[in-house]
Simulated scan of single mutants.
Amino acid sequence: MVTPVIGLTTYREDAAWGVWRQRADLLPTQYAAAVEATGGVPVLLPPQAQDGAAEAVVGRVDGLVVTGGADVDPARYGAEPHPRTAGWRPDRDGWEAALLDAAQAAGLPVLGVCRGMQLMAVHAGGVLDQHTPDVVAHEQHSPGGDAFGRIAVATEPGSTVAALVGERLEVRCHHHQSVRSHPGYVAAARAEDGTLEAMESPGNRFCVAVQWHPETVEDVGLLAGLVRAAAAYAAQR
C-alpha cells in the first residue's frame, strides 16, 4: 500500500511553552498520532490567506482532516451569535473552506472532526444549532472544561460510517453546537437524543464528518478508513 500523506488543519492561538508566550500554530498530538498509527504520514496545515494556497496543498497531500476547534462564525450561515457562541476564527474558517473547495475539485478524501463537521455543513449551505443544550435539554455532548462527554451513537445501515465503526458505539464528544441542516450530505449517525453525530457525501468519494473525536480512542476506524482511501487516491495519481 502507498504510504499516504494526510493534511491536518490547525489552530492559531496564543500559546506558552518553555520561556515563550506568543502566537502559535498548534494541534493536539492525538491527531498526528492516530494518523501515524493507521499508516499515514501527518502534515500540519496552519491557516493561509494567499491565493492558490489551498490548491497547492491539495495537490501535495493524499487526504485531509478538518480538525476540531472553536465555533464557526455565525455570519457564515446568516445568523446572529448566540450568547454561548464565542471565539470564532475567521482566518481559519476561510482557510478550511478553501481547502474543502480544492479537495472537492480534486476528489481528495476528507474527514471532518467536531468543528470540522460543522464547518463542512456550513460550507455546503447548512445551518447550525448554536447551543445544543437549548435543543436537547442536557449538556452530555459537552460537559464542560476539558472533559469529553460519552454518548451512545447509532449509525445508519449501509453508510460508510457504519462500515468503519459498526452499528452502535459509545463516542467521546466535546461540542456545544450541532448541525441542523447539511445540504449535499446524508445523515450517517445520530445520538439517542436525535442529534446528528455523523454525515457523509453520497457516492464513492470518501467524504465523512463526525461530531465526536475518533482520535481520542483506541478504535480509530474512521481515521483508518481515511488513510486507506488516501492510499488508494495516491496510487491513482
Rank of each mutant, 00 (worst) to 15 (best):
116 G>H: 11
129 D>W: 02
200 E>M: 09
132 T>L: 15
127 V>S: 08
96 E>T: 09
147 A>I: 03
142 S>E: 10
94 G>A: 12
174 H>S: 08
189 A>C: 06
60 R>I: 09
126 G>V: 14
135 V>G: 05
28 P>Q: 04
41 V>T: 11
92 R>H: 01
110 V>E: 07
197 E>P: 15
154 A>R: 14
189 A>L: 04
61 V>T: 08
53 A>H: 05
130 Q>D: 01
5 V>M: 08
160 T>A: 13
152 A>Q: 08
81 P>V: 10
226 L>R: 06
47 P>L: 07
29 T>H: 15
193 D>A: 02
72 V>E: 04
138 H>E: 07
52 G>N: 13
101 D>H: 04
149 G>Q: 04
8 L>E: 12
222 L>Y: 06
25 D>V: 06
82 H>V: 12
32 A>Q: 05
98 A>Y: 04
38 T>I: 03
156 E>S: 01
52 G>V: 14
107 G>N: 04
141 H>Y: 01
1 M>N: 03
3 T>Y: 00
17 W>F: 15
68 G>Q: 14
42 P>C: 15
193 D>H: 00
13 E>Y: 08
149 G>C: 03
18 G>N: 14
116 G>R: 12
18 G>F: 10
197 E>W: 13
78 G>C: 11
43 V>R: 09
54 A>E: 04
115 R>M: 10
208 V>L: 15
218 E>S: 10
115 R>Y: 05
13 E>W: 13
28 P>S: 08
15 A>W: 12
49 A>P: 06
160 T>Y: 02
135 V>E: 12
28 P>C: 13
59 G>I: 08
150 R>P: 02
27 L>V: 12
91 D>L: 11
88 W>I: 01
186 V>R: 14
169 L>Y: 07
100 L>K: 03
99 L>T: 04
123 H>E: 11
193 D>K: 00
219 D>L: 00
132 T>F: 01
31 Y>R: 09
133 P>G: 05
105 A>D: 06
160 T>P: 07
10 T>K: 11
20 W>L: 15
89 R>W: 06
131 H>V: 05
137 A>K: 03
175 H>T: 10
147 A>V: 07
196 L>G: 05
138 H>W: 06
97 A>K: 03
175 H>C: 13
34 A>Q: 01
68 G>D: 14
6 I>D: 01
198 A>F: 15
38 T>S: 00
34 A>Y: 00
132 T>M: 10
150 R>Y: 01
160 T>E: 11
179 V>D: 09
3 T>Q: 08
102 A>V: 06
110 V>I: 13
103 A>Q: 13
169 L>H: 11
38 T>Q: 06
159 S>D: 07
93 D>M: 11
125 G>K: 10
77 Y>Q: 10
19 V>F: 12
72 V>R: 00
181 S>D: 14
230 A>Y: 02
46 P>M: 07
233 Y>S: 09
88 W>L: 01
170 E>V: 04
189 A>F: 12
60 R>C: 12
137 A>V: 08
74 P>E: 03
34 A>C: 01
6 I>L: 04
100 L>H: 03
200 E>C: 10
144 G>T: 07
120 M>S: 14
105 A>L: 06
66 V>W: 02
98 A>D: 12
222 L>T: 03
136 V>G: 02
100 L>Y: 06
26 L>C: 09
35 V>P: 02
70 A>D: 13
